[in-house]
Design a protein around this nucleic acid. Structure first.
Lengths: 239, 239
DNA sequence: CGTAACACGTGAGGC
DNA sequence: TGCCTCACGTGTTAC
């Protein structure tokens, strides 16, 4: 329904068919002899110009709306939002992500007193609407553990990740008073997005694995960081 | 364009009133006696309705455009971009930041063979057009050093930051083969955005300070990480 | 009935 | 000149 007024679509033939345009009954100055290009053909040309103009405008609107739809897919809970609100939340997300991107929001926190294991999917974009953690056949997972510091903890965790075919992309760590908080970003490569693998099942496997690693009661022979080092780390992260 | 011919839309009142629309030269039925509400006021009411309708539409457009302007300020080089392209770059930035936010892009790299000091302002938003690193009177700076690992390096750096009244927000570190790469996010609080402080001067101060700290030739008594620890870190960051 | 949101076609102005 | 972008007013639909 691009142009319901496009009666003489190509406009080649002298179609007086054009007549009706607009809601009102007008005899719009139809191109009487459209075959004749010049002379008094300003009318026919105008209608053609108007047509291609409105079509171009439609294309422009569509281009914008496609991008808006993409943005709508990228920010959560934005379905049924009007355009202005959508852009508003996009702005908020952008600010938020800019702060996150440089670590200002300090997502890694002081190690808690109690042991804790967390596993969550990492939302990396828009490729898969209901599978936001997948991107380019890679699934990203964030796993964090908080427990007593042990010398072997770190490599045990890495080994366990490898056993689950998870690649460690990045690790943040913070140690304080014999407690340690580790945050890992893991990557599951060659992830088949069409498979019916249960993500919650995968998450549970990782969680169980982490639980077993940190509850493995080895002697806390020595902390990872020397006391001197730990002292300097105390200065850190207090913002 | 479902029904472009829907002139007698609701068809309630026999309003041919709506008449003027479109580009044709009509004397728009101005509210002759606007004081008189009813009677044969379908004309006046319609024109009033049309007016508030167009005003509301104008407000809606403005709301959207305000947000677009904000977005334009938030993404670089987007002045003089048309709306569609602007939204496209916003989408790209959003994807990019989402990846950065979770550390997938692994901005911290393997320590290089040569010593290196980098200082850069952190772009955190839109508050100040030509001062993107400032936000809520805070100036954020990212400083990274790459040098030989020494036991005292870390706290010396922290102390030096404190001397410059810089708060350490976050520290990433990676050690490999006796070399260390540290990345700090620093915050300069109560930053007066209206002052004529030269940012390049501030950056130079920080850079000079870092240079002097890492070139201070103390004996590399012991590395920060134990060899066991370093081994496990080698597994890391290889993606 | 009002209100709000959207798509549409069109005039204006910039290369 | 022609194409592109934008703002505008309007028709239409949904609550």
């Amino acid at each position: 329904m691009e142009n319901c007024f496009a009666w003489s679509d190509e406009g080649k033939d002298g179609s007086s068919s054009s007549s009706l345009k607009g809601p009102f009954n007008y005899i719009p100055p139809s191109p009487w002899q459209s075959a004749k290009p010049s002379s008094s053909s300003s009318e026919g040309r105008d209608s053609t110009a108007l047509r291609i103009h409105s079509e171009a405008e439609k294309r422009r609107r569509e281009r914008i709306n496609v991008h808006l739809s993409t943005l709508r897919r990228m920010v959560p809970n934005s379905a049924k939002m009007d355009k202005a609100s959508l852009l508003g939340t996009v702005i908020d997300h952008l600010k938020d992500l800019k702060r996150k991107a440089v670590g200002i929001d300090c997502s890694i926190e002081i190690p808690a007193e109690f042991n804790e294991v967390k596993v969550e999917l990492v939302d990396v974009g828009n490729q898969h609407e209901f599978l936001p953690a997948a991107c380019d056949d890679k699934l990203y997972i964030k796993a964090s553990v908080c427990c007593d510091d042990r010398a072997d903890l770190f490599q045990n965790l890495i080994k366990a990740f490898n056993r689950l075919r998870l690649t460690t992309i990045r690790a943040d760590m913070m140690s304080l008073g014999g407690r340690v908080q580790n945050v890992f970003v893991l990557c599951l490569k060659d992830f088949d997005t069409s498979s019916s693998v249960s993500l919650s099942c995968l998450k549970r496997s990782i969680r169980d694995m982490l639980d077993s690693v940190i509850s493995c009661s080895e002697v806390p022979t020595s902390n990872v960081f020397s006391s001197k080092k730990r002292k300097s780390k105390n200065i850190l992260h207090c913002v």
